[in-house]
């Protein structure tokens, strides 16, 4: 039986996706699981002789509602930190008991009222020429007032969203003078530096924003990385490991490039090896490929690697 197979596939997909929505640590994963749940439910509707709802489910839910969730995450940042402590004593245990009791109750009710006949919607579906036509007939005749109320509801919701999400400005607009005074006050009170925040660093491996800037003593400047990246754990924060990364990249490039004919390879030692800081062990001397001559056909894949030009990386 074809619909039985679809039922089992869709039911397993839906329940797994629902569990994933609830259990996932990251909100984005929850949203993706919600997408899968909606697709599974749509398949279930398709096996229940509801082709219009099957399409509407996928269009409305995966197409707009989950997208709305994703847009919200984009606006307010992906904050994965969740307080795990209980604010109400015994809330988790009580919730678990309540959920289990409700599940048992529902399953008992279903088991007590086992439905023998699966029902047949073909006559109702064919009465007006199709499922969508039959639904339209019902919506615009029997349920027309509910439909009008729904339109008013949607309109109100759109207005409410505009009013709520619109950022309200209280008081006069703050100018340069006020901003500067506020900055200096923060510096005086809390010691927050009035200087601009350092930008992310640029290293031989890449110039992504995941590479933090280094302070003059070789430490990582924590302000130079976005806190969102820190939360995701994609930041290269290991300052002592950075010289190794640079050496690795240099070796990789040197292995890729054609061997130099007779020009002596310049041996370069990074400038930070001369400064003896405890947090920054001196890296091994790097062997850089020669700078390409104009006749060379293969361009240097990473011209920013040459640290002799300090302004070249900008």
């Amino acid at each position: 039986m074809f619909s039985t197979i679809i039922f089992w596939v869709a039911a397993v997909l839906a329940v797994t996706a629902a569990l994933g929505t609830v259990v996932a640590r990251k909100v984005v994963h929850s949203a993706i699981c919600l997408c899968a749940l909606m697709v599974g439910l749509g398949l279930l509707y398709a096996t229940l002789d509801a082709p219009f709802l099957f399409v509407a489910q996928i269009l409305v839910y995966t197409g707009s509602i989950v997208m709305l969730f994703l847009f919200t995450m984009m606006l307010i940042g992906i904050d994965t930190s969740e307080s795990l402590g209980e604010t109400i004593r015994g809330q988790r245990v009580a919730s678990g008991i309540a959920i289990g009791a409700l599940l048992v109750l529902l399953l008992t009710a279903i088991a007590g009222a086992l439905i023998e006949s699966p029902g047949d919607l073909t006559a109702s579906n064919e009465h007006y020429g199709g499922n969508a036509q039959g639904l339209a007939m019902l919506i615009f005749t029997k349920y027309v007032f509910a439909f009008e109320a729904a339109s008013a509801l949607v309109l109100t919701a759109a207005l409410a969203a505009m009013v709520l999400a619109h950022p309200e400005k209280h008081g006069a607009k703050t100018g340069q003078r006020e901003l500067a005074a506020e900055r200096m006050k923060l510096y005086a009170d809390l010691g927050i530096s009035p200087a601009p925040i350092a930008g992310p660093g640029v290293y031989a491996r890449g110039n992504a924003i995941a590479y933090p800037a280094l302070l003059p003593d070789g430490d990582v400047a924590p302000d130079s990385i976005s806190p969102t990246l820190l939360q995701r754990g994609v930041v290269v924060t290991d300052a002592p490991a950075l010289p190794d990364l640079v050496a690795e990249a240099a070796a990789e490039i040197a292995g890729k490039l054609p061997t130099p004919n007779s020009t002596p390879t310049p041996t370069y030692t990074p400038p930070f090896s001369s400064t003896s800081t405890p947090t920054f062990p001196p890296p091994p001397p790097l062997t850089l490929p020669p700078t390409p001559t104009p006749t060379q056909t293969t361009p240097n894949p990473n011209p920013n690697l040459n640290p002799d030009s300090p302004g070249g990386t900008r």
Binding site: D49, F52, I115, S117, L121, N131, G134, K142, A150
Partner: peptide, 17 residues
């Protein structure tokens, strides 16, 4: 809706959406 062989349940589901 399928058990009772009428489309009203589907209309209700539509309104829920």
């Amino acid at each position: 809706s399928k058990v009772h062989s009428v489309l009203d349940g589907q209309v209700a589901a539509f309104f829920t959406m």
